[in-house]
């Protein structure tokens, strides 16, 4: 059983229902390139799941298969119990997709394009709902504008509005903030977080670690077409996070004394800092004994500083391990 499943069952006293279930999914393109290798993934209803991975890791292929844009080579995907191939109508009507590329019509108005999307997904016209969506996305004033006249950020919002127009239960956001400036990115994060509050399950792919760190409940890391890990964000940071203790020395050292070798301390180039790295999850008595041993060795320090590793560092180390 994959590690994340046992982790899940151990973590939730009342297991939540899975809204998306991917099992044994593989994809080999005609060129022979294997984009996905036997992927298993369970997404819980109502969560915000961030799929992290470097460019070309298989994020977009995975989303493409779930949404019906890419043919799987093998494996199954069910959306709320509906198979994406044999029961594609039921499966797809629950999904909204915001693609990575800004693929929009040029000459249609914002209103026409969201009305189109709603119809395409088989929902009867509901101007009130569309108005709500457009207002939430600050697009209402632009409803009669042709899409070609909008800025890149606005086009991204139009794509989100199109996906929300048909009231999906699961929303896929493929790199929602790629090529978006910092301020707009913050805006987008607020927006995505508010979406989750409406009960929509959100799955976003990103290679901005900050994005996952900011919003996600759970994080999945994909690399070379394989899910490297799936973990609750907090748990991931606790388990894999490292802490560093930095000691500013009163008198620079030439070398770390022999008696302190077991701590694997790092001495800065100018000899004025000592850095001690320890795993967050392990017991922290190490610090007490380190400080004690330092005093024994006659080393005096003027300042102490600790820092925790970010998700970014965790991610980089994971991806390097897998490579």
């Amino acid at each position: 059983m994959p590690a994340y499943q046992s982790f899940l069952s151990g973590c939730h006293p009342h297991p939540m229902s899975n809204v998306l279930s991917v099992s044994g999914l593989s994809k080999t393109y005609e060129s022979g390139f294997q984009a996905l290798k036997n992927i298993d993934l369970e997404i819980e209803k109502g969560e915000l799941f961030a799929l992290l991975g470097p460019n070309g890791a298989g994020k977009t292929t995975l989303i493409g298969i779930i949404c019906g844009i890419v043919n799987p080579t093998s494996g199954t995907v069910t959306v709320d119990g509906h198979d994406i191939i044999s029961d594609y109508r039921a499966a797809r009507s629950k999904i909204g997709l915001v693609p990575q590329e800004l693929s929009t019509d040029a000459f249609e108005t914002v209103w026409a394009t969201v009305s189109f999307s709603r119809g395409l997904f088989g929902k009867k016209p509901d101007p009130a709902h569309l108005e709500r969506v457009l207002r939430d996305l600050s697009l209402w004033e632009k409803r009669d504008s042709k899409i070609i006249t909008l800025s890149g950020g606005m086009k991204r919002r139009v794509l989100i509005a199109k996906a929300l127009s048909h009231e999906p239960e699961i929303l896929f956001l493929d790199e929602p903030t790629a090529g978006v400036d910092v301020e707009l990115r913050r805006d987008m994060w607020r927006l995505i977080s508010s979406l989750r509050e409406t009960g929509v399950t959100v799955i976003l792919t990103t290679h901005y670690i900050e994005e996952a760190e900011e919003m996600a409940d759970r994080v999945g890391v994909i690399n070379h077409g394989e899910i490297v890990l799936v973990e609750e964000k907090q748990e991931l940071m606790r388990k894999l996070g490292r802490k560093q203790l930095r000691l500013c020395l009163q008198h620079p050292l030439d070398a770390v004394p022999e008696s302190l070798a077991s701590y694997e301390l790092e001495l800065s180039a100018d000899g004025s800092y000592l850095t001690y790295t320890y795993e967050t999850a392990q017991n922290r008595k190490g610090i007490t004994s380190l400080l004690h041993d330092l005093t024994e060795a006659g080393i005096r320090f003027s300042d102490i500083e600790t820092r925790e590793s970010t998700l970014e560092e965790i991610f980089v180390s994971l991806v390097h391990e897998a490579a």
Partner: peptide
């Protein structure tokens, strides 16, 4: 590229 919507629609 807007064909993605047709392909992903029910």
């Amino acid at each position: 590229g807007t064909i993605f919507e047709h392909l992903s629609a029910p």
